[in-house]
């Protein structure tokens, strides 16, 4: 029993901020919402150079504000594994000069991402108690891991595996259709902007040479929500 209490104490101490936020919101919340959202993550920009659109899933717990029922705040947990475009990608290596152009091959492992996002949603009724427009914003963290291997015809090999943290910002727009008082369906599209965190100082404990790298993707999805 003491050990259980100790674990609970440690957990609360470590996640004090989130717990405080939860109790604050609960003090002003009137209704709870649980959502599960299968989605399709479409990489953009440089992420799309090597990864293709791949499925993902989000689980979310939201609280409807007591004073303003059109406002929800919540916490979302998501998982995505972006699949590489092909087993092997090819590129041209140019070392300059006569005969200095060669072929390089790139191999990428799936890019696995765990997302934790604090969210805020705003609801704009279109048909009272039936249909509404939902807009959302969120900030959070993403832990991503992948391995990349680059080889070229001149013998250079670069093999790197990374598990790094990203700060993320999410914007979301969709519709909510209430099937019953408790169940609703919400097609949506969200945009995730992520930037690698870390330290550019090579002597720092959190040194990450990729600090500041940016990635982004779109995610059309469908939420199935239960209110209680």
């Amino acid at each position: 029993m003491n050990r259980v209490c100790q674990h609970a104490h440690d957990w609360i101490k470590n996640y004090f901020f989130l717990v405080s936020l939860f109790f604050y919101i609960d003090s002003i919340a009137q209704e709870n919402v649980l959502s599960i959202s299968p989605e399709y993550n479409i990489p953009l920009g440089k992420l799309a150079w090597s990864y293709k659109a791949s499925p993902g899933i989000q689980l979310k717990y939201s609280l409807v504000a007591r004073k303003n029922r059109n406002f929800q705040s919540g916490l979302s947990f998501g998982y995505t594994a972006l699949q590489p475009l092909a087993d092997t990608l090819y590129y041209v290596v140019d070392r300059g000069g006569v005969g200095g152009v060669g072929i390089g091959t790139a191999t990428f492992s799936p890019f696995k991402m765990i997302q934790i996002t604090g969210t805020m949603n705003f609801e704009f009724p279109v048909v009272k108690k039936k249909l509404s427009i939902n807009l959302g914003l969120g900030i959070g963290i993403i832990y991503g891991s992948r391995e990349m291997i680059f080889e070229d015809s001149f013998g250079a090999i670069d093999d790197s595996a990374e598990t790094v943290g990203w700060a993320s910002m999410v914007s979301k727009a969709g519709l909510e259709y209430k099937i019953t008082n408790n169940f609703s369906l919400s097609p949506y599209i969200s945009y995730t902007f992520m930037i690698q965190t870390g330290n550019t100082d090579s002597n720092a404990i959190d040194y990450n040479p990729g600090t500041g790298a940016i990635s982004n993707f779109y995610s059309p999805g469908m939420s199935i929500s239960y209110s209680f």
Binding site: Y91, F122, L135, L137, M169, F193
Partner: peptide, 25 residues
């Protein structure tokens, strides 16, 4: 809030456009 979200979505369209991929068949 609507303006903020729409602005972010529009900016994302711009941000999504980058240099051509170096990878070829």
């Amino acid at each position: 809030a609507l303006k903020i979200v729409v602005s972010i979505l529009i900016l994302s369209l711009v941000n999504g456009c980058t240099d051509e991929s170096p990878f070829l068949s």
